[in-house]
């Protein structure tokens, strides 16, 4: 199963809702405003660090860059992916559960 989150963890509970209901070893992709969940130095960071122990957590690079961040800002254990990887992940890990 591939879980996607596209809302900021500071505005909505989509990220937490996803973490609470994804099965261990699921893949979680953070994109659009959810990329803020992958950034170091926030009050969400510890949640994301814990998530990397149970899940494969990825973040969409173009959405990171658009918001002024790059790989160097991302929590350790989170993988930066591009659009091509996103498509491959849907094929490899689908069905997709979109947490809005």
């Amino acid at each position: 199963m591939l879980h996607t989150v596209n809302k900021s963890p500071f505005e909505r509970n989509a990220f937490k809702g996803c973490l609470a209901r994804a099965q261990k070893d699921s893949v979680i992709l953070l994109f659009e405003d959810a990329v803020y969940a992958a950034i170091k130095g926030t009050t969400i960071e510890s949640v994301t660090v814990r998530a990397t122990q149970d899940f494969k957590v990825c973040v969409l690079g173009p959405d990171l860059k658009a918001r002024g961040y790059d790989e160097g800002h991302v929590v350790e254990g989170v993988t930066v992916v591009d659009y091509g990887d996103f498509v491959d992940m849907v094929v490899a890990y689908g069905p997709v559960v979109a947490w809005l």
Partner: peptide
């Protein structure tokens, strides 16, 4: 609930 979600073909 997490098992239910995981058992689906389409969510």
């Amino acid at each position: 609930m997490s098992h239910l979600i995981a058992s689906m073909d389409v969510v």
